[in-house]
């Protein structure tokens, strides 16, 4: 990755983070599922004084969280969130992890049990570049979905339209939905033109 691309990536990440920060109240209690190296929580602790815990399975990521000064719980999300009391968090975040979950329905349900609100973000499989690659006869590989079909952890990729329907079918209230491409907000034909979908969810 060259310097410009790197900057672009940071700008986009910040945009993604900034939107999540904007959806939180100052001093919120947040649970970040699949928190990676803790970058998002670190940002939210700094910008919004969020009191947060990360959940991460991977050893190396877990250590990075610790180094980032994040409280981090090592556990497998597939087992659910049985260690967390109902409605014990202001918000539960699942940032770009939904597509890699096996037990997708359960985790979304669990997020709304544990949190008063849930934030879910995922790469939009309906993005035109992905569609173009499929039209050309191959599984999409991009910066947002950077895996080959045989080594991808992503087992439940979906489009914005799919997820809207999922929420409808599961009685989930979509409080807000934002779609981004390279950090820019997409309002016109988001399922075609948007690469990253961000949802703010609650119970109906």
């Amino acid at each position: 990755m060259n310097a410009t691309q790197n900057l672009e990536k940071i700008a986009e990440y910040r945009q993604d983070f900034a939107i999540i920060a904007n959806w939180l109240k100052f001093g919120s209690k947040a649970l970040d599922l699949g928190c990676g190296d803790g970058e998002l929580l670190h940002f939210l602790q700094g910008s919004m004084k969020v009191r947060g815990y990360g959940v991460e399975k991977d050893d190396a990521n877990w250590l990075s969280c610790l180094q980032n000064g994040i409280n981090v719980i090592q556990m497998d999300l597939e087992a659910g969130l049985s260690g967390f009391e109902a409605q014990s968090f202001d918000v539960v975040i699942l940032s770009q992890t939904l597509q890699a979950m096996h037990n997708t329905e359960n985790i979304v349900h669990e997020m709304l049990r544990v949190g008063r609100e849930a934030i879910v973000t995922f790469p939009n499989f309906g993005y035109w570049r992905n569609r173009l690659q499929l039209m050309a006869g191959q599984m999409p590989v991009s910066r947002d979905i950077p895996y080959q079909w045989y080594d991808t952890p992503n087992v439940h990729l979906c489009t914005i339209k799919d997820f809207d329907q999922f929420c409808e079918n599961h009685n989930i209230h979509v409080k807000e939905r934002l779609v981004l491409t390279y950090g820019q907000r997409i309002q016109f034909m988001p399922n075609l033109r948007g690469s990253l979908a961000m949802y703010r969810l609650g119970r109906k």
Binding site: W62, C65, L66, N71, Q74, E85, S88
Partner: peptide, 19 residues
């Protein structure tokens, strides 16, 4: 250890847990 962790979470303590 999960039980300890859960009780600490219930009290909003600062806690990290490694398995």
């Amino acid at each position: 250890s999960h039980e300890i962790m859960k009780a600490l979470l219930d009290n909003e303590c600062s806690v990290s847990y490694a398995e």
